[in-house]
Write a protein that binds this DNA or RNA. Structure first.
Lengths: 206, 206
DNA sequence: TTTACATTTAACCAAATGGTTAAACTTTTT
DNA sequence: AAAAAGTTTAACCATTTGGTTAAATGTAAA
C-alpha cells in the first residue's frame, strides 16, 4: 500500500501561517495557533523560520508577489488597452475569489508598518510592469482613447473589484435584511459583467 | 487662572481604545498600549471596563452605530430616491474621511467573530431604517425608475465609496509609481463626482 | 470635620507568549 | 553498517499579557 503523499512540514507551516496571519495579522497571530493549524510542534516553526517576524515576512512577501503579479497584463502590448483592462478585471476577480482576505491583509499590514512595505514593493516591482495609469495616459496622449481622469478610474476599478470580497461578511447580513441572499444574488460572473459596463461607460463617454 | 478642561479618564480611555483597537484589532491590541495612549494607569482600564472584551465591546458598538446611522437617509421620503442615494454617498464619504479605518475595522472583526456582530446588528437595527435595496425595489415595482440589479448596485456603490479610504496606503504607493500624487490627484470631491456619474448612469440606463 | 463614595495608583499574580535546548528519531550518504 | 545530515519532539525559560488587590488620594454630602 502506497503511502499518501502529504505536504512537508515546511509547506504545512507556510499554509497554516498564511491562514492565521491573514486572519489575525502579525500582532494578533499566535505561534501556537499556527503550529496547531499545521498539526506540528511549535518548536518546528522556529527550526524552519527562526522567528515569528521571519515567518511573517515569508507569508507577506508571497502575498504581495501574487497580488502584484495580476498587474502584469497591463504591459501585454498584443492586446488593445480596453481588452487589457477587462482581462485584468477577470484575473483579479478570479484571484480574489480564491484569496478573499488577500487585499485586506496587505492593506492592514501596510498601514501598520509602511516601511516594510516600501522595501518589499521596490524589490518586487524592479524592472517589472508599468502601471495601468501610465498605459492609459499614453493611449490618451496618442488620441487612441477619449480623455478621462485616469487616477480616479484606477481607484474606482480597484474598488469595484476588491471591496465585494473584503466586505462579504457585511454584505451577507445587509442582503439578508433586505430579503436577498448573498450566495444567490451575488456571484463573480455578475460582478464581472457590471464592472465591464463601468469600463465600457468610461471608455465610450465623450 | 482657570484650569483647562481635560477629558475625563473614562473618555480618554474610550478614545485611546478606539484608536488602538481600530489599528490592531481585538487580539492584536494590548491593554498596556491603550493605557499609554490614554496617559493613564493600566488598572484604570479594568476599573472602568472590567475586561478587555468589555472595553472592546463598547468601542465596537459605537463604531457599528455610527456606521449604520449613515443609512437612515434611505427612509427619508421627502426626497426622490436618486437624491437619497446621492445624499447617502455624500454623507458616507464625509464620514469615512473622518474615520477611514471604520469599515475595515468592522469588517475584520465581523469576519473573525460573526456571532457578536449578529447580536449587535439586530439590536441596533430594530425598528430602524429600511435598506437601500428594499426602497429601490419598491420604486422599480411602481415603475418610478428603470429596472436594474439592485443588489449589485448596492455592492458597487458601497465599493466605490468605501474602498478608496481603506486602501489609501496602497493607492499612495501605486500613484507615486505612476508619477502621480495621491494627495493631489485624489480628493473626496472628485470621488463624489465620479460616483455621482455612476449613479446617474445606472438610473438613466434603459 | 467627619463620613462616605469615587478615582487613581503601585505592587502583585497566574497564564500565555515567543523562543531555546538537547536529545531522539529518520533519512541520506559514504 | 556506520557516519552524517536532516527532522521532530518534550521540557524548559524569560518576558509579556490580562487581570487583581489593597492602599492612597480626591471629592462631595452629612
Amino acid at each position: 500500500m502506497k503511502k499518501l503523499i502529504v505536504a512537508s512540514a515546511e509547506e504545512k507551516i507556510l499554509e497554516a501561517a498564511k491562514d492565521v496571519f491573514m486572519k489575525y495579522g502579525l500582532y494578533g497571530a499566535r505561534m501556537q495557533d499556527i503550529a496547531e493549524t499545521a498539526n506540528i510542534n511549535k518548536a518546528l516553526l522556529h527550526y524552519y523560520f527562526r522567528s515569528k517576524e521571519k515567518l511573517f515576512d515569508k507569508v507577506f512577501e508571497g502575498a504581495l508577489k501574487k497580488y502584484f503579479q495580476q498587474m502584469d497584463v497591463f504591459s501585454d502590448e498584443s492586446l488593445p488597452i480596453k481588452e487589457r483592462v477587462l482581462k485584468y478585471v477577470d484575473n483579479l476577480i478570479s484571484f480574489l475569489f480564491e484569496y478573499p482576505q488577500m487585499s485586506i491583509f496587505i492593506i492592514k499590514e501596510v498601514s501598520i508598518n509602511p516601511e516594510l512595505f516600501k522595501e518589499k514593493v521596490h524589490e518586487i516591482k524592479k524592472g517589472k510592469s508599468i502601471g495601468l495609469i501610465k498605459v492609459l495616459e499614453e493611449e490618451i496622449a496618442a488620441s487612441r482613447i477619449n480623455k478621462f481622469d485616469t487616477a480616479m478610474f484606477m481607484v474606482n476599478l480597484q474598488s469595484l473589484c476588491s471591496y465585494p470580497f473584503i466586505a462579504s461578511p457585511l454584505f451577507k447580513i445587509s442582503l439578508k435584511a433586505n430579503g436577498k441572499d448573498w450566495n444567490k444574488d451575488f456571484n463573480t460572473e455578475k460582478l464581472k459583467e457590471s464592472i465591464k459596463n463601468f469600463v465600457e461607460f468610461t471608455f465610450e463617454k465623450k
